[in-house]
Amino acid sequence: MYRHAYNNPLLEVKHLVKVFTGGGLSRGKSLTAVDDLSFEIPGDKAHVTALVGESGSGKTTTGLLVLGIIPMTSGQIIYKGKNIWKMDKKGWMGYRKEVQAVFQDPYEVYNPFYKVDRVLELPIKNFKLASSGEEGRKLIVEALDAVNLTPEEVLGKYPHQLSGGQRQRLMIARALLTRPRLIVADEPVSMVDASLRAGILNTMLNLKKAYGISFIFITHDLSVADYFSDDIIVLYRGSNVESGDIKKVLGRPAHPYLQLLVSSIPLPDPEKRWKARTMLKAEEITRRRGEGIGCKFYSRCPKALDICANTRPSSVQIDKDHFVSCHLYSK
């Protein structure tokens, strides 16, 4: 439908840091949600990068930073060669058009005061996507069609009159209106019933194929990430601990944290229960660690070495398309 290939990386995130502090006059503790994160989204073809982590990993914050909704503490976010925080108004509008989002909570994203149509009308109005009401309506119908919704089903209704699945599809339709190049999807199916998730994921896969849209897919669910993504970045407390081609990384996880995760996820197959496939078992380890020094996973790591207590591991390539930050693999 519309494919715009771009030879350089589409998005470059360089040394991204986000620190949340307690506030001006109060001297509260600070929280480093994103800690020196760097990654790239290629531009030559549609690509899905999964950003995986548990709660507190910083994955949602990273998404908000990439979208430019919250300011960063330091680092650079470069889109098509331009730093997004240094863009002029026109450039910024262009960024907003090409990078859109789908959020997790299909209830929260709708202002209960307005009918759901508004969610579709706002981008059309603000980005001047249509020159007449007629044209705007056509765009809306097109977008709804791409997500398998009919206008009669959803238009003219209030948010509480639609189901969670319908609301989520509508969100995706909204994201499509501006013909984005990249969609940041933050847990798009975790609040939707299991039997309806596949449909929404398949819809998004179709968008990738038909419209050439790339995704940053933020999730805690490794199985879903595996189904949907090409690459994976595993976050632990704001840092990238392992990344690369998703089949490689999940097939042979290197970092102890990822090994722990993969061993712990429940598989919907009674023939392959935990006992039969544990790579690494969680232990009740209480190791004290100085604040800010050493590997973040040290206090929970069953394979920790002495060096882990006081030196941060740096990224090491252990295979084509497979990187890990762990002293076990340092040369």
Binding site: S195, L196, A198, S223, D226, Y227, L250, V262, L267
Partner: peptide
């Protein structure tokens, strides 16, 4: 069953 992904 058909709507649940299995890792791997």
């Amino acid at each position: 069953m058909m709507s649940t992904p299995i890792l791997g």
